[in-house]
Design a protein around this nucleic acid. Structure first.
Length: 270
DNA sequence: ATATGCACCTGTGTGC
DNA sequence: TGCACACAGGTGCATA
């Protein structure tokens, strides 16, 4: 579910509830994830305080006061929400972090594709493999050119490769390519300088706009306060198979690329 | 280097 | 109603 804009929205919405707060207690109800939740996760968290929340691509990093960090990935269906400590535990609530007082941070994940792990930064090697963040200040067409040069893969696959660019998933790859007027199947290495510039710009504008709108809520995504996002109201192509392109009215096409549904306008994207 | 398929899971929508 | 099936925001691995 969550891509960069949703993860960033969650990060921002949780920050005021989390930063400076002490962890009064931790309850784990389910450890069977793709990567099993550590046996001593509760012990490592209990009594610690949160310094800040960082984001790297689709990962959230909760920095604690003892050089340890809680690394979290929401996978396909994960959510993080602040609730009242007395609220009932519901289906697929797997971890509850009780903050002092009446609040609790709840990790809920029906499909259990998420990841939750405590360690110091060098132990969290998942982060070694995440690429450039397109919302960082140093992101540029020049950077994108380096990533695309010589590659024969479709540009959409390059955008979604987390080792190259961090944070872009299926929704935003489709939307960014539409905004840039580039067909998802184009070989990355074949893009002209002007196209790469348009693509680098589209990356920033689309992701930025999505963050401003609180991300996309298709069926179930909500931020840390339970609020849905609104970017789904502005999809140009994603999930719009056969619907008219908003610029030229040509029906949107759907193909499969890298096993993922891919949507584009055959007229506006060349 | 790259492409494909599958595995990991549950939930939802569709057609019969 | 029930059932089978396709598909879903992600990632990692095995195989070609």
């Amino acid at each position: 579910m969550p891509e960069l804009p949703e993860v960033e929205t969650i990060r921002r919405s949780l920050t005021p509830y989390i930063v400076g707060k002490r962890i009064a207690d931790v309850e784990v109800y389910e450890r069977r994830f793709r990567q099993r939740i550590q046996r001593d996760l509760e012990a490592r968290l209990r009594g610690r305080s949160f310094r800040r929340i960082e984001r790297r691509g689709k990962y959230l990093l909760f920095v604690l006061d003892d050089r340890q960090c809680l690394l979290l990935h929401l996978g396909m269906s994960g959510s993080l929400e602040i609730r009242r400590a007395r609220d009932p535990v519901v289906r697929h609530d797997h971890v509850r972090v009780r903050l002092d007082g009446r609040r609790v941070l709840v990790f809920n994940d029906p499909r259990r594709f998420g990841l939750l792990r405590v360690g110091n930064r060098r132990e969290l090697h998942e982060l070694d493999r995440v690429g450039l963040d397109p919302l960082d200040d140093d992101w540029s067409a020049e950077q994108l050119r380096r990533l695309a040069r010589g590659r024969r893969r479709p540009i959409k696959n390059v955008l979604m490769d987390q080792r190259l660019l961090a944070g872009i998933g299926n929704i935003y790859a489709n939307e960014i390519l539409y905004q840039a007027g580039i067909r998802p199947t184009r070989r990355a290495g074949s893009l002209r300088r002007r196209e790469l510039e348009a693509l680098a710009t589209a990356t920033v504008t689309v992701l930025g706009r999505a963050v401003d709108l609180g991300g996309s809520s298709i069926s179930d995504y909500v931020d840390g306060e339970g609020q849905p996002g609104n970017f789904q109201l502005h999809f140009a192509v994603y999930d719009r198979y056969r619907q008219p392109c908003q610029q030229c009215a040509t029906p949107i096409r759907r193909i499969v690329l890298g096993g993922r549904s891919t949507f584009y306008c055959p007229r506006c994207q060349r």
